[in-house]
Design a protein around this nucleic acid. Structure first.
Length: 493
RNA sequence: GGGCUGGUAGCUCAAUAGGUAGAGCAUUGGACUCUUAAUCCAGGGGUUGCAGGUUCGAGUCCUGUCCAGCCCA
């Protein structure tokens, strides 16, 4: 009896590769015998509804083969493009030995360049009749299942490339993400904003209330921090006489990882000189509602099976009023230590974090945020949690600031920028006091920024968007990991 | 940081009450020149996340641990 050689799928793919090399065929493509003159997507969109196909026109396209259907002396398969699949068709009596090589040594997932003409099968499927083909790269690992796709979230995130070419819905999220970013850039360029880049490596992490990642510069011998926001650098540019600037990029916050938080995420910040909070409200409404329309052709969309209405104007409410409706008095929190303790107890805030800023923030998150569904501007933020915004003229304990909430997410944050250097210095000092009292997320004191303000920052409107959350809402996802190509995961041991 | 759920073939999933780990797809061999989840015939493929424990016997029960998902802080 002959010992049967037991092969698993990877072995058989490796054997196929070896056989190709023995036939002096490079499974990895170089050099290309001919260049592509079209793509799967182009052929599909151009000819999908075309009735007259010209067999004299030869197309050369590259792609990944999926679902090879052997049929004796003919073969059908699908060539995967970016958004479309194109069926290909091979006949033995035309390709001879190249047909046998295809039949015996090509596996699904392989990348090939094909050359042929378009025709329609009797089921009317647009198909490329192959006259010649060329190997581009061998896929030596087995693929996920063709019908159920790849469902294991861990593999989907760790090996996103598999997710992308196996699960079309996954790819769609990232295509929409790219469209959103492109829309925002176009919009801002059309409004006269200039895109700039400011440092990601900071000496002092500023511009937001968040914990930073720490790193070290070896030759300078100093600790540095990954930026938590570009804000203070961008305002220095307004001091430098630019009037409309924006930055779209990553910021890093050293906090918990969850379905709503990734340690690095994308933010858009813009600053407009000679403008104020009202200008930012108008700008925000226009950007968001026109973006939604651009993506969905409607101002009303579904998110998690509930309607979201993006028609202008958005709802506007006041931070202290909303908390007051919930039975919480910010004035009293400021003046009554016992009251603060009582509220902190109710909110289960740990003893070391019982600082006014923390309690206010937490109370809003717990009591008001869960009710903010349709786009809503929350105005009049307390000064304790708004160290970079100007105070309201009628009450210095509240600021000219808004946060925009959509579907319970904080999506945007804007204020009339504080431009009085003495007042800003005082705010920094107050933040240091909060820090001493146990507020881990107080704003750092930035002397260099005070110097910049001392040269004069004009009244300026500033606005920041959380891009990932915006993408989540527009792609109907509840996990941020579905809209970040490579989300943060623990290393696999 | 805490709680709950999960991890079984390449993938998607089964496995009653603790009693020989199965199916579909994929893969291998064969038939087939219009298939598209092709079809038909035949086969191979497993250290059940990892490390221990209980038991005559563990995918299943217990302890620890790793990773993921969900919820809470």
């Amino acid at each position: 009896m002959i010992n049967e050689v037991k092969l698993d799928e990877k072995d058989s793919r490796l054997t196929h590769r070896k056989k190709l090399k023995e036939l002096s065929i490079n499974p990895y493509g170089y050099p290309l015998p001919y260049k592509p003159n079209s793509t799967v997507d182009e052929l599909k969109t151009k000819f999908e509804n075309e009735t007259n196909l010209n067999k004299e026109e030869i197309y050369i396209v590259g792609g990944r083969l999926l679902n090879i259907r052997h049929h004796g002396k003919s073969i059908f398969s699908d060539l995967l493009g970016v958004n479309h699949k194109l069926q290909i068709y091979l006949k033995k009596d035309e390709l001879n030995e190249k047909f046998d090589i295809f039949k015996d040594y090509i596996d699904s997932g392989d990348l090939i360049l094909v050359k042929g003409y378009l025709f329609r099968t009797k089921t009317n499927e647009l198909t490329l009749h192959i006259l010649d083909y060329h190997f581009l790269a061998k896929c030596i690992l087995p693929l996920p299942e063709k019908w159920h796709g790849l469902k294991d979230t861990e593999i989907r995130y760790r090996q996103r490339y598999l997710d992308l070419f196996i699960n079309p819905e996954a790819k769609k999220n990232f295509i929409i993400r790219s469209k959103i970013i492109k829309f925002l850039r176009n919009y801002l360029e059309n409004q006269g904003f200039m895109e700039v880049e400011t440092p990601m490596l900071n000496i002092i992490p500023t511009g937001a209330l968040a914990k930073p990642f720490k790193t070290h510069h070896n030759t300078l011998g100093i600790d540095m921090y990954l930026r938590i926001a570009p804000e203070l650098y961008l305002k220095r540019l307004i001091v430098g006489n630019f009037d409309k600037v924006y930055e779209l990029g990553k910021v890093f916050r050293n906090e918990g990882i969850s379905t709503k938080h990734n340690p690095e995420f994308t933010i858009l910040e813009l600053y407009q000189a000679f403008a104020d909070l009202n200008d930012m409200i108008n700008l925000t409404e226009d950007i968001i509602s026109s973006l939604v329309y651009y993506i969905h052709n409607s101002h009303e969309i579904e998110y998690q099976e509930k309607k979201l209405n993006f028609n202008k104007p958005f709802k506007k409410i006041s931070f202290p009023n909303e908390l007051y409706k919930k039975g919480l008095d910010i004035e009293k929190l400021r003046n009554d230590k016992e009251y603060l303790e009582k509220i902190a107890n109710e909110l289960k805030i740990p003893r070391e974090n019982r600082v006014i800023s923390h309690v206010i923030d937490k109370a809003f998150d717990e009591l008001v945020k869960p009710e903010l569904w349709d786009p809503t501007f929350v105005l009049d933020y307390p000064v304790e949690i708004s160290p970079l915004a100007i105070s309201k003229s009628d009450n210095p304990l509240y600021t000219e600031r808004f946060e925009l909430f959509i579907a319970n997410f904080e999506v945007a944050n804007a204020f009339s920028e504080l431009n009085d250097p003495d007042e800003q210095a005082l705010r920094f000092t107050q933040q240091q006091k909060l820090k001493e009292k146990g507020e881990a997320e107080a704003h750092e004191y930035d002397h260099d920024y005070i110097t910049a303000l001392s040269y004069g920052l004009p009244p300026t409107g500033g606005l920041g968007f959380g891009i990932d959350r915006l993408v989540m809402i527009l792609t109907n996802n509840i996990s941020i990991r579905e809209v970040i190509l490579f989300p943060a995961l623990l290393p696999k041991k």
